[in-house]
């Protein structure tokens, strides 16, 4: 069986694994980015306690490797008499890493909003929450979009770490194929190609979006 036949035979289960990877990425982003926004607002808060708690969450989340976060969740939750599935642990761990990182990108975006437009909104008698919702957050998020897209690519790659907590994503599938067939080089090459097929166009898209956003302003 040559390499292409070998790839073809294993492609269906590899594709299923990739499905899991994409699902994890989407879940981490959908849950993590809104939480990141909340953390960004918390870190910028005037309330000292809130600011410190949020800052601690962000710094720990950014400081600890994603793999360590996954292990802490996976081995930590049972200690609390909870026994979530591996997939749930993966969602929790990746979401935490995502919200910690994205909060910093979003905070940078929020800080870049021109003080003039904020002042104008205040002068127009818009209440503080409205200023945040309609003026600061939309402008700040727009600035953060390219770095958030860049991060999305990174967290997609980081889903491979969930292999270590028994999630059957594409790296885990590759590993089990390799241990059954002893054709590790070939199967991991396929895995690499499959990751690249997603990440390379995603990087192009990120650049395109970045250019468009710079043109607009």
């Amino acid at each position: 069986m040559n390499t292409f036949e070998f790839w073809g035979d294993n492609f269906p289960q590899m594709l299923a694994g990739m499905g899991v990877s994409l699902q994890l990425t989407l879940g981490a982003l959908v849950m993590g980015i809104p939480l990141g926004l909340l953390l960004a607002l918390g870190v910028s808060s005037k309330l000292r306690l809130l600011r410190w708690v949020c800052l601690a969450l962000v710094e720990v989340g950014r400081g600890a490797p994603a793999l360590v976060v996954l292990y802490v969740v996976y081995y930590g939750l049972p200690v609390l008499k909870l026994s979530p599935e591996a997939m749930t642990c993966a969602y929790i761990g990746l979401t935490y890493t995502t919200c910690a990182y994205t909060s910093e990108y979003i905070r940078g975006g929020l800080k870049s909003v021109s003080p003039g437009s904020i002042e104008a909104a205040h002068a127009l008698a818009m209440p503080g929450l409205d200023v945040l919702r309609f003026i600061i957050i939309p402008q700040g998020l727009r600035v953060a979009i390219p770095s958030l897209m860049g991060f999305a690519i990174q967290i997609f790659q980081a889903t491979s770490l969930t292999y270590s907590i028994t999630v059957r994503e594409v790296t885990a599938v590759s590993y089990s194929v390799a241990s059954q067939t002893f054709r590790a080089l070939e199967i991991f090459t396929l895995a690499g190609i499959m990751y690249a097929i997603i990440t390379i166009p995603a990087s192009w898209l990120t650049n395109k979006v970045e250019q468009r956003l710079t043109l607009r302003h």
Binding site: S114, G116, S117, E119, A120, A121, H122, A123, L124, A125, I135, P138, Q139, R142, H217
Partner: peptide, 16 residues
Amino acid sequence: RRNVGMVFQSFNLFPH
């Protein structure tokens, strides 16, 4: 502020 409109030197429109 509702009773008082303001126009700024740097216009300060909402760019988005």
